[in-house]
């Protein structure tokens, strides 16, 4: 079985600074993977590359059974190919209601003409309602998302990702700004989602990563420092030195 996402030999330089350095790793089709690493390790930049926001200087990124190269696709094409992304800070459309946000994200035709003549069916309404229920926003469907709390915005964004039905989900620090109960709910949701798709989670919080109970990749200075179970990597002396030792 080939991997869903294959990153190999990728390097990115910003003004002479090597943010990603010969990075290689694979993600399987239904895998939960946590990526940890100190600030500036290149975790967000890695996501930028996979989603088409940043173009690498060298290396290849391929996706899916037919191993299409993501490097030649635009952000929108990559998203349509099945890569969903949750940002570090919650980004939802604040002037629009929760329902509108979810509807926009629903898997459907994306071309302007199709969208212009798109009309909401009962099935769509049900899907939106189900998604809202799943992320605990049932009562907020008609509210403008700008009014939501920080945690609720995180939830809405997760809901939008679910609506997109991506095959690969990249989640940047989902637990930031969440209460303990919300974190537990998030963990459960991520584990559940990873049963049917690949989920890559970037997180600083070790407790959170432990609860995910999955393979961990440690990034440092733009490349993989260690990979394995959380216990395995936390025993690695190099990891202890660059990351845990400072915590």
């Amino acid at each position: 079985m080939t991997a869903l996402l294959e990153v190999s030999g990728v390097s990115v330089t910003f003004d002479g600074f090597r943010a990603i350095n010969n990075l290689s790793f694979n993600i399987e089709a239904a895998e939960l993977r946590a990526i940890i690493g100190p600030n500036g390790a290149g975790k967000t930049t890695f996501m930028d590359i996979v989603t088409g926001k940043t173009r690498p200087d060298t290396g290849t990124v391929t996706f899916g059974e037919r191993s299409i190269s993501l490097l030649s696709l635009s952000e929108a094409q990559i998203a349509r190919a099945g890569v969903g992304r949750k940002f570090q800070r919650p980004t939802v459309f604040e002037d629009q209601t929760v329902a509108e946000n979810l509807t926009m994200a629903l898997k459907a035709q994306r071309a302007p003409w199709r969208v212009l003549f798109w009309r909401e069916t009962q099935a769509d309404r049900d899907k939106v309602a189900a998604l809202a229920a799943e992320v605990g926003l049932s009562d907020a469907l008609a509210r403008k998302s700008g009014e939501l709390s920080h945690g609720q915005k995180q939830w809405l964004e997760i809901g939008m990702l679910l609506a997109q039905e991506p095959r690969l989900l990249l989640v940047d620090e989902p637990a930031a700004g969440m209460t303990l109960a919300e974190r537990e709910h998030t963990t459960a949701l991520l584990v559940e989602m990873a049963k049917t798709r690949a989920v890559v989670v970037v997180e600083h919080d070790m407790e959170f990563v432990r609860r995910l109970n999955c393979k961990v990749t440690v990034l440092h200075e733009g490349s993989v420092l260690a990979e394995g179970s959380l216990d395995h990597v936390t025993r690695n002396p190099q990891v202890i030195e660059v990351y845990l030792g400072r915590g």
Binding site: A79, F87, T91, F93, D95, Q96, T103, M104, A105, M160
Partner: peptide, 20 residues
């Protein structure tokens, strides 16, 4: 939905790209 998408582009076009 078209109106939704263009208002979203007005406020945060990068995010709209990641929605596909």
């Amino acid at each position: 939905k078209f109106g939704s998408v263009i208002r979203a582009i007005r406020d945060d076009e990068q995010r709209v790209r990641f929605l596909g």
